[in-house]
């Protein structure tokens, strides 16, 4: 048992890497998603069509294939990309596509009269979206957005396959060193659960904060 406790710092290093990847991806994916979703709704056709293509293609691909494409294809053009960068870019592309669709749905669900009222006051497009439409779309955007964030924490485990030492990678390594398979896998599972439980609590808290009296 002592040997397992000795190995815990290695697992925690993995947790740090997993959190790093997840946070970067959620931020990047949210930025892509907000503009992607608005582009899908309000963009001119030359923007809307490629965005639709991006969203539909990425949502049809396994996440792992997206990671491998980003990891293996650029070197064919003499562009070096680290495993860490490939994972962050691929997961962001993936999260961006999903969040685009979430934002599109959420914004489309806001009553048209709200936009009319803001127009009638003389607001131009961006102030109308930021101050009137998006705040009202948030309550329906945040729950699926939270799910996407959890998917990204889980998805960061695929970084193992391009040799990034995140939590699953460290788990595998520690099991090899200690032979305590059951204990270490259960510890890793509990760590993933704890991270995602925190993410879903945070999502629920955010949702309560943006939910005005209806």
């Amino acid at each position: 048992m002592a040997s397992i406790i000795d190995e815990l710092p290695l697992l925690l290093q993995g947790v740090v890497a997993t959190l790093q990847i997840s946070m970067l991806v959620v931020v990047a994916g949210s930025i892509v998603g907000v503009f992607g979703g608005l582009g899908l709704l309000f963009g001119p056709i030359w923007l809307r069509a490629p965005l639709r293509g991006y969203v539909d293609v990425v949502r049809g691909l396994p996440l792992l294939v997206t990671i491998f494409i980003i990891y293996y294809v650029p070197p064919a053009f003499d562009i070096d990309i680290s495993g860490f960068a490939a994972v962050v870019v691929a997961l962001s592309i993936f999260a961006g596509a999903h969040i685009s669709e979430i934002v599109r749905g959420g914004v489309a669900s806001v009553a048209k009269g709200q936009s009319d009222a803001a127009k009638a006051l003389g607001l131009t497009f961006w102030p109308r979206i930021w101050s009137v439409v998006l705040p009202q779309a948030l309550p329906s955007i945040i729950p699926p957005w939270t799910n996407t964030a959890i998917e990204m924490v889980k998805g960061s485990s695929l970084a193992y396959l391009v040799s990034v030492s995140e939590l699953l990678f460290q788990t595998y390594k520690v099991v090899g060193r200690t032979g305590a398979a059951m204990e270490i896998y259960i510890a890793a599972a509990l760590l993933y659960f704890a991270i995602n439980f925190a993410v879903s609590r945070f999502g629920a808290w955010l949702e309560r904060r943006v939910r005005y009296a209806l």
Binding site: I150, V153, K154, G155, S156, S157, L158, Y160, L168, T171, Y172, Y185, A188, A189, Y192, F193, N196, F197, S200
Partner: peptide
């Protein structure tokens, strides 16, 4: 809340 890859491993 678990990654599928962890379950497979």
């Amino acid at each position: 809340n678990l990654p599928l890859l962890l379950i497979l491993f």
